[in-house]
Design a protein around this nucleic acid. Structure first.
Lengths: 143, 143
DNA sequence: TCCTTAGATGCAAATATATTGCATTCGCAA
DNA sequence: TTGCGAATGCAATATATTTGCATCTAAGGA
């Protein structure tokens, strides 16, 4: 967890326990977490919820964390420090979430088309999949 | 707008003015709209906000409308009746949104991989791009 | 190690967004 | 035209997020 602290210091922000905990929790999770879930996993004494929000915002702007939108009421966050990029798969029936690293995520063609037609310089994208997980799939029709 | 009314009736739901207006407004918009924006565009007398929410939820479940998550506080909605599928591009600087129809959106490879590795039956996906629009791009560094 | 200070935190209050219960009204099929 | 089940308005409530401000703390310098 030393690395987490250095990440903040080297970017000119004090390293606090809460910040370290948030990064640790996100690094340990295999799926993106909501601010509430993150806070619940921090051992007591927990930081105030507002602190968690403020830190997540900061971390996103520093590029340490990425926000993910899974069509829920709140946003989720995932670690971005490992340079990887994950996509989430959400079950529309039970809400189960899984994340995976794409073998190759080649959207560069689309991104260059966007630059050409809309003049946007695309820096990143967000891709989520929705459907039914294996369990719910098996139960289909049994309602 | 007759079509909109028939869409509801044929699905077993009464066609009301509010429902027709919501579908019309979404069909006329070139970008996804938030519930608030949709309601603002409905001529007086406007339906109650709760009615707008209830109807959007219904329309999503009927497949008439699709929800889009652009990493904002609220969800946005777009028409789904034309069978097309759009992707949004969001400017991180000014918030400007543009939508486009992908020439070809071939994520079927990824989707079949997902079925194979995670056992999920993927029925749809959501893809958004983020970056800087042409205007903001031009202003870069001029802060 | 102690001191200083910019920045971080806790707490409370304010907003924004979304949902729900219930009485009333409306769409539409007979 | 009438009756019923579904839709709506309204008010209350829930949830998510943001903000002001007083206090506390991390981290560099003396």
């Amino acid at each position: 967890m030393k690395a987490a602290f250095d990440a903040f210091r080297s970017l000119g922000h004090p390293a606090t326990r809460g910040r370290g905990e948030i990064l640790r929790i996100l690094a340990e999770s295999v799926i993106p977490l909501s601010p509430r879930e993150i806070r619940e996993r921090i051992p007591d004494p927990k930081p105030d919820a507002s602190t968690v929000y403020r830190n997540l915002t900061l971390m996103v702007s520093l590029g340490l964390v990425r926000s993910v939108a899974l069509h829920e009421r709140s946003r989720r966050y995932e670690t971005a420090t490992d340079g990887t990029h994950r996509h989430s798969v959400v079950c529309r029936r039970c809400g189960r979430i899984e994340s995976f690293q794409p073998k190759k995520c080649d959207l560069s063609r689309i991104e260059s088309d966007i630059r050409g037609t809309l003049g946007f310089d695309v820096t990143d994208h967000s891709l989520e999949f929705f459907g039914s997980c294996a369990d719910c799939e098996g139960k289909r029709g049994r309602r």
